[in-house]
Design a protein around this nucleic acid. Sequence first.
DNA 1: GATGAATGAGGATTCATTCAT
DNA 2: TATGAATGAATCCTCATTCAT
Lengths: 204, 204, 204, 204
Amino acid sequence: MTQGDTRSDKQPRTERGRRTLRKLLDAAAGEFGDHGFHDASISAITARAGVALGSFYTYFDSKDAIFRALVSDMSDAVKQAARAAIDPAASALEIERQALLGFLNFAAEHKEVYRIIDEAEFVDPANYRAHYETIGKRITERLATGGDKGDLRPDLGEVEAWAIMGMNVFLGLRYAIWACENDGAAEDVASRANSILKRGIGRV
Amino acid sequence: MTQGDTRSDKQPRTERGRRTLRKLLDAAAGEFGDHGFHDASISAITARAGVALGSFYTYFDSKDAIFRALVSDMSDAVKQAARAAIDPAASALEIERQALLGFLNFAAEHKEVYRIIDEAEFVDPANYRAHYETIGKRITERLATGGDKGDLRPDLGEVEAWAIMGMNVFLGLRYAIWACENDGAAEDVASRANSILKRGIGRV
Amino acid sequence: MTQGDTRSDKQPRTERGRRTLRKLLDAAAGEFGDHGFHDASISAITARAGVALGSFYTYFDSKDAIFRALVSDMSDAVKQAARAAIDPAASALEIERQALLGFLNFAAEHKEVYRIIDEAEFVDPANYRAHYETIGKRITERLATGGDKGDLRPDLGEVEAWAIMGMNVFLGLRYAIWACENDGAAEDVASRANSILKRGIGRV
Amino acid sequence: MTQGDTRSDKQPRTERGRRTLRKLLDAAAGEFGDHGFHDASISAITARAGVALGSFYTYFDSKDAIFRALVSDMSDAVKQAARAAIDPAASALEIERQALLGFLNFAAEHKEVYRIIDEAEFVDPANYRAHYETIGKRITERLATGGDKGDLRPDLGEVEAWAIMGMNVFLGLRYAIWACENDGAAEDVASRANSILKRGIGRV
DNA sequence: GATGAATGAGGATTCATTCAT
DNA sequence: TATGAATGAATCCTCATTCAT
């Protein structure tokens, strides 16, 4: 997790301070992920981080503030994971498949990220909305690029982007977060989803 | 909202009791919808319902209990809305279009339902999961039926069902809950989504 | 102490509630009087009142709120004590003597009142100012009445009223609150102060 | 404000140290004057002084300590202001008028001094009491001197001194600290108060 | 059934003070 | 001396739940 853009005015000025801040962010990710925002307590976070209770307020103004910082961080991390999974030279459909596969793998690895971003709908709605609108825009752009390249239909827009995003998020919920033994591999899930994009679901 | 099947163990025995119960459920839907589970208080619910604080516990064992009852109610309501929107005699693809359109219209009318079910992920995870698994199964069945009828590809399963469900939910979020002025009509959104199902997004 | 005009929206509706409210006010007067506003704690107040911590918030919104209520109460009590000590039929100078004597006796009996009102300068400045301005006006009126009756000079106004009020307050501080063994009786103090008003301090 | 006699045990040894100490005292006067003792924080004081938080404890043992140092300073300053306003060769009554006028002018110029000394009643009661007892003694002496000179009645003592002090303090509160547009000039206030001392308030 | 007062565990937050650099 | 991070006791306040009437 790298620190996001949303900075409080409480930047550490020493190396020691930077380490403490990082310990707090990591501990908070664990607590929020394990117990959710409301059942996580500052004292549990500081205990997990191994620092004194009061030290929390050296770096964050409130419980909300660290949650928001975390959502920003994780929102960035999700986007980077998707981007890192993509080969820009690939075809538009292949890019979508790679993006979904990257997301599935990332979600399986970082289940707490999924949970924290989801809970932002209630704790930090603005950031939650921004998260999905940003991703929605990015997919919209990819669709437009694919249309320009001739890979995709030329009339694709925001509606299609949100449809794809919803597909991806729910497949992540079902096959990464709630994964069970006899589920198919992430590759299979990504391929089947990609097949919808390629051919639809109508009879061949 | 009508009272669903998940009943607390505190059934009202008089007509007066039934009215109080109804007032509490409606008030709770409003409070949970407006403020979320944690920021809604029992006293706010009873105040909105116009009954005394203590009366709450005549009908529900706890704050969680009324939330769960509400989630059950609303889960049923969502499913009924989709079912009511469907013409069983239509083609499989048309049925999916109708289901999405029904959902979009329902969500726009009952935004608090969307919010409450979403928050169940954190407050009542079992119910949340059951809600989507039930819907997922129903869609899976529709896809199988469509395959049998020859309307759809014969190899569609749970993955495709969850992909469709995710599409629907996110289009509901974007175009019903977060609807803005210059968004297209629900019909347009449903048609574009249906077009993905019909043809995919590849070049014609 | 009777309850003042500054009412929160948390009026008790039962007799039991009225008793609890009274216990809290009395306990708060004791704690604020003994330890001052900042060193008094809600838990000490409720412990002294013999009620649970949470019960405090059934009747008051905050620590500030009960302090303000108390200041109002005590401000009223001080004014009533002065009024009760006065014989309206007496001469203007005699009335001033009686008012001071009444105040000295009241302050000696209720040292916590003196302290609480004084601390209001920092905790509830508006009420503090209102307290003294009200008393100042009342003295101004008495001086005007005395002037009309021919007992006093006709040119007395607010300045003289505040001068008299200051005299009284400081004599109360020195001879009621800080009283020590070999101080004269309250009657002597009141008489000597009255003598200033009657003749000034110039050589006879 | 100059540093008074009450020194903490932490004397600066360098010129730089002396400057830092001065900055802290000035900042503390501002913070305590603006927010009161309890709402002023060490970190606000050091921020205002432009020094690091930890530097505070190089010069003062505690928050109380700097407050006490300030009260001592200011108590001295008040007394010096009164003394400086007095012409010792004047008549006793004239001296009292000058003392009051000096105090009114000083209070108007240094409202924070008034507030800090007043709050000492709760934070540093010993110093508060000492402050007024010292002034009370000084006035008592002036009255005795006036009696000896034949300017004043020969039977004036502590009671009269405290009465005069109370007058002065309350006239300062009303016409210096709470001064408003249409109040008379300090000279008028001082003259009217002096007139009470000269003739009392009885009919001419 | 209805009422509303009483309860107290729980948690966020503050801030004076200490300490390592 | 100066710095600023670290500490943790202290306290206000919330609110789900219980209970007497």
